[in-house]
């Protein structure tokens, strides 16, 4: 009898915790499909009009496009650099290697707000502020420490003999890297790609500071601007944008979750 009560209590606790986590999403979920959406939860008059309006408005599709351009380019650059660098860190012993690995680990400790001021001024001096290129470079660099650690660890686990065999068959070192190591990276590369993409996709502070032209705004800034325009908030489109904004990370997360949880990335997931 006591076990039943105890189990019931524990179910109740867990349900409350789950509700606490889920209830805030009610507004976004319901308003996105509500033709008369307001700032608070109400029973929706079901329609997909908000999504249609998101894609037909003059400026909202641009936000999605900008987010995609920035995130995909930054992730690609990040992975390309991380793959080469991770390979060097895994396969060579050279002076300063440990120092480098520890230094980039320490970089993860620096919160973005603490360097954003100097970063902005530096970008202005380099004429890289208010541009795709500048933001892409910054985002790719910011996620590099985690990518380097991840890929270094993944390459460590790939037997060196496989590469040697490829050299014997006449491959150059880079050729072997491309033909043998790269196809074996699997989960490690997937995890690095997901972490980088989600970090860039969700970033708010860096684009807020670096971008001034509304033409370049990604979704995060677009949502913020739309939300802060007090008098003329289109709640329905705002909620629809939020849903659309959540789709790519949700897909990535669903696809890669297993790999991610398997490779004990505790420290790397957050942030």
């Amino acid at each position: 009898m006591t076990t039943v009560v105890q189990r019931g209590l524990q179910y109740a606790l867990l349900t409350m915790l789950a509700l606490f986590c889920l209830v805030p999403f009610a507004w976004v979920a319901l308003s996105a499909i509500d033709a008369q959406a307001g700032p608070t939860v109400s029973a929706p008059a079901f329609s997909l009009e908000n999504f249609t309006r998101f894609f037909t408005n003059a400026d909202t599709p641009r936000l999605l496009l900008n987010s995609l351009i920035i995130s995909v380019a930054a992730t690609a650059l990040n992975l390309a650099c991380g793959l080469l660098g991770g390979y060097a860190l895994a396969r060579f012993r050279f002076r300063g290697r440990s120092f480098f690995m520890f230094s980039i680990l320490l970089i993860r400790v620096i919160p973005a707000p603490a360097t954003i001021v100097a970063l902005y001024l530096l970008m202005v001096r380099m004429n890289l502020d208010d541009s795709y290129l500048g933001l892409i470079l910054v985002e790719a660099a910011a996620a590099l420490p985690v990518t380097l650690w991840l890929l270094k660890g993944t390459i460590d686990a790939i037997p060196f003999e496989l590469e040697e065999a490829a050299w014997m068959d006449g491959n150059t070192r880079l050729g072997a890297l491309r033909r043998v190591v790269f196809p074996l990276l699997g989960p490690g590369l997937g995890a690095a790609a997901m972490l980088t993409f989600m970090a860039v996709w969700g970033d708010f502070l860096t684009p807020l500071v670096l971008l001034q032209s509304p033409d370049l705004y990604p979704l995060s800034i677009g949502l913020f601007r739309a939300f802060s325009a007090f008098n003329q908030v289109d709640w329905g489109v705002l909620a629809a944008s939020a849903v659309i904004y959540m789709v790519p990370p949700a897909i990535l997360y669903a696809v890669l979750r297993r790999h991610l949880l398997k490779s004990s990335l505790g420290g790397a997931i957050k942030g």
């Binding site: 789950a18 209830v23 939860v41 969700g202 708010f204 913020f224 904004y245």
Partner: peptide, 20 residues
């Protein structure tokens, strides 16, 4: 359910609470 708040972008997380 518990993971959801962590995986959504920061801005969406804030937006959900603005309505709450």
């Amino acid at each position: 359910a518990i993971l959801l708040p962590m995986v959504v972008p920061e801005v969406v997380a804030a937006l959900t609470w603005a309505s709450v």
